[in-house]
Amino acid sequence: MTLNNFIRIFITIIFANYINSKINFFITDYYLNFTLGFLVFSYWVFTLEEHLYALPSFCIGLSIDLLSGSPFGLNALLFSISSYIIHSYRYSFKIFSFLQVTIFFAFLSMFYLGFIHIFMNTANFSYLLIFLSFFLNGIAWIFIYILMNRFKKIFYK
């Protein structure tokens, strides 16, 4: 992967994370949380032919930790683990339907959100929020997949 392409990937994830934080401010009251930054990262891991392996995932996670004020290493850990899981199922995805893939990523984002809340919102951990966000992030994945496919065609070389 070239440095330019890595920067493009990085910018999309940071941008999605920024949008995510702006939207979540309004919807948290309704027990909903997006994980747009994580879904965009998952999209890149899922679709890239050059593969986003351990080191880029770790670096992107650390940068998000710094930018978002979460405990240092939390996103790095979760991004690395997610990248490993997605790569492990790389060949299985080929026989999955789009619905199955959507459910897989909705589950993955649910676990990501669950771990984030375990570390950052321990006293007010809400199962309802995690459960409802499963559906929200499943729907978000569909839109992210479509949008990022267009983005990839235009900007990713």
Binding site: Y53, S57, I81, Y84
Partner: peptide, 13 residues
């Protein structure tokens, strides 16, 4: 690579 970096991230955390 995954093993090393996951251990490192856990240590940071």
């Amino acid at each position: 690579g995954y093993f090393v970096l996951i251990i490192l991230a856990s240590l940071f955390l």
